[in-house]
Structures are given as C-alpha cells and as structure tokens.
C-alpha cells in the first residue's frame, strides 16, 4: 500500500468518510480507516457512551456497526471510487470471526489494507482480550494472515505492561504494520448523582490527554520491530503529527481532533509540508525516526 501523504483518519472518528465530505476533499487524505466492522451486526453499548474529560474524552460505543455484509453491499459501493486508501478496521469476538470478516474484505478490490482491531476496550468479549497477551495477539494475527493477502495492519492496545512484547508477537505473526495506540481504559464519575458517566462504567480515553503516552509507546515500539508504525493518540495539529514521525512512526492517524475541527486533517497535511520546507527536507522519510537523543 502506498500513501500520498502520512495523514490518515482513525477508525471510529471519521465514519465512512462521507460524513466529512462537505468539509474537506477526502481524496487529499493519505487514507481513511473506516469504522470498526464485525462479522455480524452489533448494536453497541447503551447510552450514555461519551464523557468529556480534561483535554480528552471517554467513549464506550462498543463497535456499533451493521456487519460486514452490509458494508460490502451498501457502504463499499458508495466509497470505493475515492482516490485514497480506504482501510477497513476489522474486529471480532473470536479468531473465527476475525478470519471470516478478513476473508470477505479480502475480496474487495479497492480496499488495499485492513486494520485488525485487537484492542477495543469497550466490548466485553474479545477485542482487547487478544491484544493484551503476546500469545493471543500472535495467534489472531497468524490466523488472519493466512487468509488476508493484502496489507495487514494490527492496532495495538496501550492497556498492557509492555507494548513492545505485543508488537513483536504481532510482527512474528505476519503483520505488515502496527498502529498504536488505541484508547486507554478510563473512567469518569458524576459525584452529584454518585453514578458513572458511562453506561459501561469504564471507557476508552482519547484526545490530547493521551498524547505523551502514545508518543512514548511509538518510540519504544520503533526500537523493537522492523515493520512500519502508524502512530496515533491525541494528534491535534501538524506539530503533534511531526512529533510522532520523529518518534518513529511512518504515518499517523487523526482521531478525536476530527470532532473539534472537521478540516483538521488538511491543516495537518499542509503543516507537515511547511515543516519539511522550513527545515529543507526533501521528503517525509527524512524525519521518520529522526529524533536526536
């Protein structure tokens, strides 16, 4: 998979792209990672699913989606013409459901890659269960690798003791790339009502609050694996994006920032170009992992 630029949109924050078509030219993006897709339709968690926290937000959507068949029949035809990389985020509750979903997506000509979500903190069964042990991460990656012939990205959970161990296990399993980080497990409480703010009590934290953790993990993983890294977590502007590239990411994803400024991705693309020009770099590859320390 080739990217026109390193800026992609994070799964679950950009719908299927079409939601943002009034605000930006979607074809200027390096890629769009569409909403988490599962084998069968999922209703997701009950409302309330969101709580705003200082410099961040918690969500507990729970992978609401209409299932992979609906995606193939109704959504794919509407977005496949877009001249950008449409990447499907694939989630499951057991190895079998990951494999079957990946097999179906493998048949879609205009989808150059999948992002395997082994790190969703908001579903009781599966998801993060695979992402928190090296063995589980390795097994699910291996199984999907056997059926999925195009670019396989695996999205890692930060809710682990040593993320480099998981990253290595995924690389061994045959992943072409890793993306990190998914949301951090968090919690918010309404003290007046003595109740949790989310229906699921805990949820995933995103936004600028998580950026230092994400940067640290990208830097650690870049030392541990030889496959390209896609960095994400609290990127709000071009400067944040450049920090991830310097830490070792080959590309980045913008998530929560899309909610605050639906045009932010374009500003980031332009900001990165300005930075390269200002520092007299010929190409983006010169700043990937260029951190001096």
């Amino acid at each position: 998979m080739q990217l026109a630029n390193p800026v992609m949109t994070a799964s679950g924050t950009f719908g299927y792209g079409t939601e943002f078509a009034d605000f930006i030219d979607l074809e200027r993006l390096g890629g769009i990672i569409v909403k988490g897709t599962t084998l069968n339709r999922r209703e997701g968690n009950p409302y309330p699913r969101m709580a705003e926290t200082p410099s961040g937000m918690l969500n507990a959507v729970g992978l609401q989606n209409k299932g992979v068949d609906y995606f193939v029949q109704h959504i794919y035809p509407a977005i496949k013409h877009l001249r950008t990389n449409i990447i499907v985020n694939v989630s499951g509750s057991d190895i079998e459901s990951y494999v079957r979903t990946a097999e179906i997506i493998n048949e879609l000509e205009e989808i150059p890659a999948i992002e395997l979500n082994i790190s969703c903190p908001n579903v009781k069964q599966g998801g993060m269960a695979f992402g928190v042990t090296a063995k589980g991460a390795n097994e699910v990656t291996k199984a999907v690798r056997e059926v999925y012939k195009k670019t396989l990205i695996v999205k890692l959970s930060p809710n682990v003791t040593d993320i480099t161990e998981i990253a290595r296990a995924v690389e061994d399993g045959g992943a072409d790339s890793v993306s990190l980080i998914n949301t951090l497990l968090g919690m918010a409480i309404d003290a007046e009502r003595r109740r949790p703010m989310l229906s699921t009590i805990t949820g995933g934290l995103s936004g600028p609050a998580v950026k230092p953790i994400a940067l640290r993990m990208v830097w650690q993983v870049s030392k541990a694996v030889n496959i390209p890294i896609i960095g994400l977590g609290g990127i709000m502007n071009a400067r944040d994006a450049i920090e991830f590239l310097l830490a070792g990411a080959s590309a980045i994803q913008v998530g929560t920032a899309n909610f605050i400024d639906p045009t932010v991705t374009i500003k980031i693309i332009e900001g990165i170009n300005d930075y390269l020009e200002r520092h007299h770099y010929q190409s983006i590859s010169e700043i990937i992992g260029a951190l001096e320390c």
Partner: peptide, 10 residues
C-alpha cells in the same frame, strides 16, 4: 461529540 454521525456517541 462530533455532531455529524461519525462518533456514534449520541
């Protein structure tokens, strides 16, 4: 959160 049907929070 998003207001445009992307985040599925509301």
């Amino acid at each position: 959160a998003c207001g445009v049907g992307a985040c599925l929070c509301c």
